[in-house]
Computed example of a mutant assay.
Amino acid sequence: MSTPLRHGWTTGACATAATTAAYTALLTGDFPDPVEIVLPKGQRPAFALAREELTGGAAMAAVVKDAGDDPDVTHGALISSTVRHGAPGSGVAFVAGPGVGTVTKPGLPLDVGEPAINPVPRRMMREHLAEVAARYGGTGDVTVEISVEHGEELARKTWNPRLGILGGLSILGTTGIVVPYSCSAWIDSIRRGIDVARAAGRRHVAGCTGSTSEKVAAELYGLPEDALLDMGDFAGAVLKYLRRHPVPRLTVAGGIGKLSKLADGHLDLHSGRSQVNPGMLAGIVRSAGGDEALAGRVLAANTALHALRLCQEAGLPLGDLVAERARLTAVGVLREAPVAVDVVVIDRAGAIVGRAG
């Protein structure tokens, strides 16, 4: 019996989720994660945030598009929304950020010169912005800048250049829909795990990416089962819940690949939603005094584990350096929460190859 094909999200649904999260953070200081939206037919999917950034006058949130089993060129693309306050009475203005195209020919459902953000995604974003404004006392006067990482490059594989949409992709979708891969249940179980640990009086918990790292953390610190959090790929969910419901000490434990993503600022560590950045690893090598030849070999490495082995042979502690960068990412998400963080990096066999904190 054949398995039904898995549906995916439209770029419009992803942009709506990112915009909703960003405007909520702009008004409240906190990003909802996962962020739930309502699609045109009433479905209520939730999206994990892959990145978030809050500065004085702007908030940025990003999600990774999951196209399901559709061979979509935008599958895995990082779609971000930066929301800024607009002038009183200005309403919602849309701006094409990097990777989003601009309409240059008539005949599309948008005027020439407009960002290639189609009418239904615009309507969805406006509705969600209005709801957030009503809930948190905002005016709803905002500028929304939508960006797609590598969007200009991806757009060359689409019909956009022929249609006169230049500079990037279109933000599309009429239903937004799909049968979701739902991260809500997993994130909810992480939160409940923290609640249980706190209720049991645990002063030290471990967020682990898998069973091997969980075993290492338990043995290393003598942690009981109710102090072990099945973090999986959702590092952001652990850190953000602990920010509001602190435990005195957190250990983050995982493989070199996933924790190098955390070191690079990713909060969602899934292979389909974030990638290891060899350039970042090479930069760590250089900043630690490694020579250019080693940095070059790390840049060309097949995997983070391969890069680690190259550095071990050269006597450079890449595992410790990645652990420290990952720790700094975690501390940044925790903000002022009274949580001391340490990081344990392991290889596939469960050997500890890096520690920090």
Rank of each mutant, 00 (worst) to 15 (best):
A18W: 07
G255S: 08
A282T: 11
R191Y: 14
G210F: 05
S2K: 15
L242T: 08
L269H: 00
T209G: 03
Q275K: 15
V95M: 07
I284P: 08
V341R: 03
G138M: 11
R325W: 00
G173V: 01
I146G: 02
G29I: 10
L220P: 00
R44V: 12
A307L: 07
E153F: 13
R192W: 14
G257D: 11
P338V: 06
D291E: 13
L26N: 00
V205D: 02
L172R: 02
A263M: 06
D230S: 14
P224M: 03
V216A: 02
E145P: 12
A235W: 01
A314D: 12
C208F: 07
I171Y: 02
R126P: 00
G265R: 08
A18S: 09
D230V: 14
V339A: 00
V100D: 01
E292K: 07
I256C: 03
A337I: 07
Y136F: 15
D30L: 15
G107L: 06
A58N: 03
E324M: 11
G8E: 07
R273C: 05
W159C: 03
P109D: 03
S170P: 13
G332Y: 06
G137N: 11
E114W: 14
A235G: 00
F31G: 06
A293R: 14
V95A: 07
I187F: 10
Y241G: 02
A293F: 08
T16A: 06
E52F: 14
D33R: 08
G168M: 09
A116C: 09
A87D: 13
D264V: 02
A13R: 05
L110G: 00
G210E: 07
S287K: 15
E313Y: 10
R162M: 11
G222P: 09
A263L: 03
A93H: 15
I165D: 02
V92P: 13
D195L: 15
P88K: 12
R297L: 14
P161M: 10
L223D: 00
R123L: 14
P119E: 02
D347S: 06
G254F: 03
A96W: 05
G97K: 10
I352L: 04
F47K: 02
R348L: 15
T20G: 05
T82E: 13
D226N: 12
P71A: 04
A13L: 06
E36H: 13
I194E: 01
G201Y: 12
L154M: 14
T303F: 01
G289S: 06
Y241N: 11
G354F: 05
L321V: 06
S184N: 02
G265Q: 08
A116I: 01
A197W: 09
E225G: 05
S213W: 04
L54V: 12
L269N: 00
A200Q: 14
P40Y: 08
F47R: 02
G193V: 04
Q312H: 10
I117E: 00
A13D: 04
E214V: 12
L328K: 14
E324D: 15
T19R: 11
A17M: 05
A15K: 05
D141P: 08
V103Y: 04
D233T: 04
V38G: 00
G290Y: 12
G57I: 12
G254C: 12
V103S: 01
G140C: 09
R243C: 09
E152Y: 03
P98C: 11
G236V: 00
R192N: 08
P338I: 04
A206P: 10
E114I: 02
P34F: 04
